[in-house]
């Protein structure tokens, strides 16, 4: 038998709700959702794209991280994987696709070519995609193995964890009410 005093102490207790409540910060909740549903924009330009496809397939299985949804429309994508040699002719198309991606967005330069031009020291090749768009993670390798790509995506996840998601999203609101 439960005493009266104990019942008073648990006045707000509802057995139907218990177990379904999590107390957290808004930032943490937003970051958690973002980092586990990063939809990649596969910018496959050369052989790195083959490794990217392998990473998405069942052996390496990007879907374990919520990243299996390769979106060929930039408007639905969160992270752009620049996989391969960026020629000058392609460079502004890559930039244009990047500009169409909604914020927040991240960029991975996958492999030597996308990071620095790689072995293509030539008139036709952009010497690193970072000359055109901001890059969050560079992955070394020629091409990198799928594990390396997964590691790169996990690096971005870790980066997202430290984000001030709410503050960034509601910047104007906070400024108006400061």
């Amino acid at each position: 038998m439960v005493s009266d005093s104990l019942q008073t102490a648990h006045a707000a207790y509802d057995s139907k709700v218990e177990g379904n409540v999590i107390i957290t910060r808004v930032d943490a909740a937003m970051n958690w959702m973002r980092k586990n549903s990063m939809w990649p924009m596969p910018m496959g330009l050369a052989c790195c794209a083959i490794e990217m496809m392998a990473a998405a397939c069942s052996r390496f299985d990007l879907s374990r991280f919520g990243m299996e949804v390769m979106r060929f429309s930039p408007r639905q994508a969160d992270v752009m994987i620049v996989a391969g040699t960026v020629t000058y002719k392609m460079a502004l198309a890559v930039k244009r696709v990047w500009d169409q991606m909604p914020e927040p967005k991240w960029c991975i330069a996958m492999g030597a070519c996308a990071s620095s031009g790689g072995m293509y020291r030539s008139y036709a090749v952009l010497q690193g995609i970072d000359q055109l768009i901001p890059v969050d993670v560079y992955i070394s390798g020629c091409p990198p193995r799928p594990e390396a790509l997964i590691e790169g995506l996990m690096k971005i996840q870790r980066k997202i964890e430290g984000d001030h998601a709410l503050e960034n999203q509601k910047k104007e609101f906070f400024e108006d009410h400061a």
Binding site: Y88, K89, A91, L92, G117, Y120, R121, S122, Y123, A124, V125, L126, Q127, Q131
Partner: peptide, 24 residues
């Protein structure tokens, strides 16, 4: 025409730079 390329620029169409050859 040098292998490293020459700079050129067409705004919003394309641009090129000079690739660093570092002696090779």
């Amino acid at each position: 025409f040098p292998l490293a390329g020459r700079p050129s620029d067409m705004p919003d169409v394309a641009f090129t730079g000079v690739a660093p050859l570092e002696g090779g």
